[in-house]
Design a protein around this nucleic acid. Structure first.
Lengths: 206, 206
DNA sequence: GTTTGTGAAACGATTCACAGCT
DNA sequence: AGCTGTGAATCGTTTCACAAAC
């Protein structure tokens, strides 16, 4: 598959949400213009984004809402469920585990780990906090697809290394550090302070 | 000021962190190549990013670590502190309020709001949860610079509207919806499920 | 008449490469 | 000699505009 820009994939995710909204509202067909308006982009952008993957519309008519949603789920790999391990039972970790939205969209949190003896063994939203020492031992049987790193900054890189060594292929990092992983591992980072700094910059420079 | 790409500003934030690391390690001078290696980019990229704002280095020598860090703080607007209101005392809201990293980097959470009577009045990490009904009344005296929206999806847009009407100029949105605000309001969104979907796409397409 | 799909044009960001300063 | 600062070249993304399909 030809290399697709991340910005394109982000928009596809949004389009999928919009299609689900349109479907709830009973629409059976939708134009690229309608999707564009909903997403703050242009109809040409919508059509170009879709064109990388095929042609899903009917000229003069638009797209079938339900059908296009299905195509997008295929493209995004959302026709299956994913098993997620959360590393770090601190504030962010616990917020993630309790957040209902993940499960609703196909991401099941199946394990949460911590190093703190005061937390290990405690139930957390139906999951017992596991001892990080057992990570390598547990992971094969847990059949985890991706890991979320929600540790303090200094623990994040060593944890990433352990996870990768244990065979994890995709990481989402919330620790405020820049991780480095092997090329074949997929890594996304969310740095909350950096987002605030972006606001600071925008506020400052007019 | 000429329009600067968001990707550039993101990198500047990272460079600032790296400079702080280098400074802790006792370095007084740093080359664009060293910053680039630390950040997974190229030295030309580093120099180009900086060049939009001035020339901060010395040819043949590199950059003064402490001095460049100061210049970046100026550029990013981080020489002052910001007063932040968190809207929504749910999981994400409480994680944010308790997270120490914001205060360390100049963002003081000065108020947290919720609509749930069971939460209002309760202390939350030293802050009493305020009644969202009082938002417009409170905000002027709180002198809030920016607001973080951590409500359920359906409440996010109405809250954004109220915040903007109350004079807030910058919003960071964690609700899983696409908000629309007036052009002059600065809006960043962090959509956790969308980040997971990006991993799903990457895992699926090879 | 409406709306898609897509080459071509325009725009924007990154990389190159080297002159110029230390 | 070493490293920055920056135009020029390259590469990638978005927008335009229109022929083709309905």
């Amino acid at each position: 598959m030809r290399k697709i820009a991340e910005s394109t994939v982000r928009r596809l995710s949004l389009y999928l949400r919009f299609l689900e909204e349109f479907e709830e509202q009973g629409a059976s067909t939708v134009s690229s213009e309608a999707l564009a308006t909903r997403g703050g982009t242009t109809s040409a952008q919508v059509r170009k984004d879709l064109s990388f993957f095929g042609s899903f519309g009917k000229r003069g008519l638009g797209y079938q809402v339900h059908e296009l949603a299905g195509q997008l789920r295929d493209i995004l790999g959302l026709t299956r469920r994913y098993r997620v391990a959360v590393i770090g039972a601190g504030k962010i970790g616990s917020a993630l585990v309790q957040y209902r939205g993940f499960g609703q969209r196909g991401f099941d949190i199946v394990a949460i780990y911590d190093a703190d003896p005061a937390k290990i063994g405690h139930p957390w939203n139906g999951l017992k906090v596991r001892d990080i020492e057992n990570l390598e031992h547990d992971l094969p049987s847990l059949d985890v697809d991706l890991a979320v790193i929600a540790t303090p900054g200094e623990a994040a890189q060593p944890m990433a290394d352990r996870l990768v060594r244990a065979g994890i292929k995709a990481l989402l990092n919330f620790a405020p550090v820049q991780l480095t992983v092997a090329d074949e591992v997929i890594l996304k980072s969310v740095n909350l302070v950096l987002e605030l700094e972006l606001l600071s910059y925008a506020l400052t420079n007019r």
